[in-house]
């Protein structure tokens, strides 16, 4: 029961190693999480969607698609070239956004899409989008970027308007300030 000091020290070392291993485990959760998401097919914001299941167009329904553009702490001008369009489910459509880098140096941004109503997201299939990868803009560059998409024919009947909204974030590390509110400069 009462053990010699050496045994205490041995147990201490073992437990300390366990603590370090668990610190590593916290970081190991990162790739693990990515694997699980990939396997479960969730969280694939940056991947092209599978193209529409059948090529049929449902002419009986007309859906209004509204386009929205935001930037987050990023002095880019970012706007859709059309504020809304009307489409039939199943119809392949191409639209475009325009972005201008107001800075005198290159900046990389990443656009993150979101949908309103949320349920529309799973029926909104983007086949081509500038959001699939980061966009590096040269100093003062102006660029027009297309989005190609199909709205699924199985879109729930109560959804008549879908808002597609992009927010451009600056990719951290491409430029000194991370951009935030409050004390840091």
């Amino acid at each position: 029961m009462r053990k010699a000091g050496g045994e205490n020290r041995q147990l201490l070392i073992r437990l300390a190693v366990a603590a370090f291993v668990m610190f590593g485990f916290g970081f190991a959760l990162v790739p693990f999480y990515e694997q699980i998401c990939a396997a479960a097919g969730i969280n694939n914001l940056l991947q092209p969607d599978r193209s529409a299941v059948n090529g049929q167009i449902d002419e009986s329904r007309t859906i209004t698609i509204e386009f929205d553009a935001n930037t987050h702490d990023l002095p880019w001008q970012f706007r859709p070239l059309q504020s809304e369009i009307k489409v039939h489910p199943g119809q392949l459509v191409q639209i475009a956004y325009e972005v201008v880098n107001n800075r005198d140096y290159p900046v990389t941004g990443q656009a993150i899409p979101s949908y309103g109503p949320k349920v529309a997201g799973q029926h909104f299939r983007k086949l081509e989008c500038f959001c699939f990868s980061g966009q590096t803009m040269a100093a003062r560059e102006r660029r027009t970027m297309p989005v190609v998409f199909v709205v699924d024919t199985d879109l729930p009947a109560d959804v008549n308007t879908i808002t597609l909204s992009y927010t451009f974030f600056e990719v951290a590390g491409t430029q000194a300030s991370g951009g935030d509110a409050g004390g840091r400069s």
Binding site: L29, V30, Y33, C37, N43, L45, L46, H72, G109, Q110, I112, G134, F169, E170, V171, A172, G173, G178, D180
Partner: peptide, 19 residues
């Protein structure tokens, strides 16, 4: 993520806040 340019949770850099 705040100071050294990693993107564990920064969606713009390929991270994920849900993580």
């Amino acid at each position: 993520d705040r100071h050294f340019g990693t993107s564990f949770f920064n969606a713009a850099g390929g991270g994920d806040p849900v993580l």
